[in-house]
Design a protein around this nucleic acid. Sequence first.
DNA 1: CTCTTGACTGAGG
DNA 2: GCCTCAGCCAAGA
Length: 109
Amino acid sequence: MKPETLTFFDKVYEVARCIPFGRVTSYGAIAKYLGAAKSARMVGYAMNGSHGKDVPAHRVVNRKGLLTGKHHFEGTNLMQQLLESEGITVKDNQIQNFEQVFWDPAKVM
DNA sequence: CTCTTGACTGAGG
DNA sequence: GCCTCAGCCAAGA
């Protein structure tokens, strides 16, 4: 990869890979961790390019714990199944016990 | 170069 | 708690 390509996007991928099993985080949490809390949209946008990478995008949801990006996955419920496979309860595209499974990147670091 | 859109969020009503 | 507005930055037309 070219150094010029090392941007906010690459940092997002890096943090996303650090998300532990059975945990989730929000776009804003990642953005804030990167020092660009107001660029949460870029995190989601970056996820658009997460295909072909080891980025567990299904573990990244919006601040409400809603699976806003499920439409970007192959199936209509693939994202939900992936989360449920990790022990996360999902109901109506929304993560239950969100605070319980929420993972803060800054908290680990 | 300009305009629109988007996997978002926080503040205000 | 829900709706609306503005800010953010990048990619595509």
